[in-house]
Structure formats: structure tokens, C-alpha cells
């Protein structure tokens, strides 16, 4: 039954994949860059997601620059030079910013250590009280 469900499920999805518009490569690269840039007028969304007029225009700029042969990094650098690092939806991983990437990893590592120690202790010592 599950097999049927899965087949059904992904058949529809697969057909969705094959139908891509003609200039799909440029569109996909634009989407890739645009989803990393923050929409200035809506604040939370990327310019890829935001339906606002300015976002559409910024997407057009991204597309034009990519078409003109700029690399995604160069396009991002252009927007940083105009709007500051704020425009990046993901902070660059250097300096102080490393903290926000490292802290969760440190927490998980420490937590795993604590769990290993605790489980070892709780399984070894016989019940007291």
C-alpha cells in the first residue's frame, strides 16, 4: 500500500520537474542568488520570495548581472556595496559572526557528552534510596 502511495506521490512531482521554462538555467541561478538577498522593504523575506515591486526590480538586476557574466559572488558584492552586509540573509562566516554558527554545534557536542556520561553513570551504579 505504501508502495502505491509513494509511486503516486512522486509520479506527480516528477512530471513537475520535467516541465521547466526555456531559460531555466538563468532563472535558477537568479533564484539562487536572489534567495540570499534580503528585501529592503519587507525586511523578513528574500527578494526571491517577496512579491514587492522593488524586489522584482532587484531580481531583474541580479538576472542582468548574471547574464552579463558576473559570478554570484560579484553580484552579492554589488548589493553589499550598496546596502551593506545587512542585505545578506545569512551573515558571512567570519570573525564575530562565527559565534552564531558555532554555539549550536558546541551545545550539541556538550549535550552528547553529558548524555553519554549520565547514561553510563545511571546504568552502572545500583539504585540508591
Amino acid at each position: 500500500m505504501i508502495r502505491v502511495l509513494v509511486a503516486l506521490l512522486f509520479a506527480g512531482v516528477a512530471s513537475a520537474q520535467q516541465m521547466m521554462p526555456a531559460d531555466s538555467i538563468l532563472e535558477a541561478r537568479t533564484a539562487e542568488v536572489a534567495s540570499q538577498l534580503r528585501c529592503p522593504v519587507c525586511q523578513g523575506l528574500s527578494i526571491q520570495d517577496s512579491p514587492s515591486e522593488l524586489s522584482q526590480q532587484m531580481r531583474a538586476v541580479v538576472k542582468d548581472q548574471l547574464r552579463a557574466g558576473k559570478t554570484p559572488e560579484e553580484v552579492k558584492a554589488y548589493f553589499i556595496s550598496k546596502y551593506g552586509e545587512w542585505i545578506l540573509l545569512e551573515p558571512k562566516a567570519h570573525g564575530f559572526n562565527l559565534l552564531v554558527y558555532a554555539l549550536p554545534v558546541i551545545l550539541i557536542a556538550a549535550g552528547l557528552g553529558v548524555i553519554v556520561l549520565a547514561v553510563r553513570k545511571w546504568t552502572q551504579t545500583p539504585t540508591s534510596t
Partner: peptide, 13 residues
Amino acid sequence: AIKGVKVSVGEPF
């Protein structure tokens, strides 16, 4: 507060 720079932390992060 600490570095005096405005950064964004959004969806990709």
C-alpha cells in the same frame, strides 16, 4: 551591541 554592525539572520542561515 558588540561589533556595531547591522547584520541579518534569515532563511538561508
